[in-house]
Write a protein that binds this DNA or RNA. Structure first.
Lengths: 207, 207
DNA sequence: GCTGAATTCAAACGCTTGTTTGAATTTTCA
DNA sequence: TGAAAATTCAAACAAGCGTTTGAATTCAGC
């Protein structure tokens, strides 16, 4: 492939990641993407075979980027004490509340998919990529009694992920009335502890 | 108002409640509503001044119906032991997992609004209706140490509501691969206990 | 029964969506 | 350099959306 076309492709990809992270798949139009990327309308269909193809590629990039993250390395998580691993996981999930970096965008895209999976994700998963819900399930399992069923562990993981993503996905919402939350470092630290403790006490002693 | 026009109005309202509960506000088109209600396309604008006006009315009906519910009567909740009140609240929130009755539709509509509030709800709240998030906050507060800040209680309530609604809103999703949850009476009972215990142990000892 | 208001209806409007077209331009490679 | 391939571009397409129109119909009250 030629250099100039790579530039267009990357511009689209970058704009798409930012917009999908902010507004989700349905909330983002191709016209908004090409405007942000400053490319032609037809470029998305030419380079990605349509909006769905582009989103598929975005999921791929986000997933690869996510796996490259230190704190998510499965082995590293397993080597930590379970309490520390849990807190690290939660903190990472809440990262988009503070930072606006690329990793935060990846996490936020998955936060959208987490409760409202698009049909694109379904195909993406079939392609061979393992949804990180499995990692969350494994993590949660360390707090559950031995022999806990897959179903119970899955539900616990869903609940944990749901608690994080509800804050991430609706960040803007919660900063306004009637919520009026001030989202700063102190708040995120507190929230990290809060959710971790919730999971820690709740899962370990409850189920 | 004349009888025949009331019939049309009610038919629209009924169809809208079912569809909004199933697919949310954005996921429901006026054409789908009039098709289900078997009325003319223009009827929604005539009777409700547009889709938003209809949704406003749906929220009103849902909210009134919700308040008529025994288990949500604020006084009744307050008279219960806090553990029983919590379990009752959670069970009620999970009701749409099993039943397909009118009350379940109301709860499900609020489950949609819970994480992705429409601008219509904002106006609805301003009109004077108290979002039931406040009741949840009060309920949660009984488990928190005296003097807990409003912010902390609010976050705990959001987390609690989020845990319930993620299951309610994505019911169909979770019955399919890769989740494969079987949603029956036994599961809902277990889930009720699970989430209640999660909140009970987590909130009471964690925050 | 007549009159005016209320209601229904088919059709279209204006807008946004994702996608396609086909010509113009640029890049690649012999 | 010249021909073929790759890429960009403005424009239009087809479909869906919520809404409006204006005539046809039904209703209520004198």
């Amino acid at each position: 492939m030629s250099r100039p076309s790579d530039y267009t492709r990357n511009a689209i990809l970058k704009a798409a990641i930012a917009l999908f992270a902010e507004h989700g798949y349905d909330g983002t139009s191709v016209r908004a993407i090409v405007a942000k990327a400053r490319v032609n309308q037809a470029a998305i269909n030419y380079h990605f075979k349509g909006k769905e193809g582009l989103y598929f590629e975005v999921l791929k990039v986000a997933f690869e980027g996510y796996l490259r993250l230190d704190n998510f390395d499965p082995q590293r998580l397993k080597d930590m004490p379970r309490e520390e691993a849990l807190r690290s996981f939660v903190r990472q999930q809440l990262r988009p509340l503070l930072a606006r970096d690329q990793m935060s965008r990846y996490i936020r895209i998955f936060a959208w998919e987490n409760v409202r999976p698009s049909k694109v994700l379904a195909n993406f998963v079939k392609t061979g990529a393992i949804p990180f819900l499995e990692s969350a399930t494994e993590l949660v399992r360390r707090f559950l009694p031995p022999g806990t069923s897959d179903r119970d562990a899955l539900c616990a993981a869903i609940a944990l992920m749901g608690q994080c993503s509800v804050f991430v996905r609706n960040r803007e919402q919660f900063t306004q009335p009637p919520f009026n939350l001030t989202i700063d470092e102190a708040f995120v630290s507190w929230l990290t502890d809060f959710i971790s403790q919730l999971a820690l006490n709740g899962i370990a002693r409850g189920a």
